[in-house]
């Protein structure tokens, strides 16, 4: 399960790592599974937005190396703290085409820790 490099830009952005570290501090579990030295940026289509405790999840569909569409799970903070940062239960809707940044899993599996997203109208949320 690897994303293609024509749709994914791997970046190492220290300032983003620092910002993310501050966010992950409020997670209910360890964030050791995420590679916080790497930032993945990809264009994706939202399949589902789970506005739930203890973490919100953005289910996105992306194109893999073989050109096939596959589902990834992007984990955010809890809905309570995100609400106070301006998020809402309908921040992401199924069908939204977004650019999304996240820290990938260390083992390359299809999940990541949310950093930021940009919507088709140019608006952003999180650290973009």
């Amino acid at each position: 399960m690897q994303l293609t490099f024509d749709t994914v830009k791997l970046k190492t952005a220290l300032f983003l790592v620092v910002l993310l570290a501050a966010d992950l501090a409020t997670a209910h579990h360890s964030s050791a599974m995420f590679d916080k030295s790497t930032v993945v940026e990809v264009t994706a289509t939202v399949k589902e937005f789970q506005w739930t405790n203890p973490h919100v999840w953005i289910q996105v569909i992306v194109k893999n190396k073989a050109g096939e569409m596959e589902e990834w799970s992007i984990e955010g903070l809890g809905p309570n703290s995100l609400f106070r940062k301006g998020w809402r239960p309908n921040t992401f809707s199924p069908g939204d085409v977004i650019e999304i940044k996240f820290n990938p899993m260390r083992d390359g599996s299809s999940a990541g820790g949310f950093i930021g997203a940009r919507f088709s109208d140019g608006s952003t949320i999180g650290d973009w």
């Binding site: 209910h28 789970q50 405790n53 799970s73 809890g78």
Partner: peptide
Amino acid sequence: RAFDYACAENNRN
């Protein structure tokens, strides 16, 4: 406001 925090609601970790 303070809200519900239900850790077991959708614990995917």
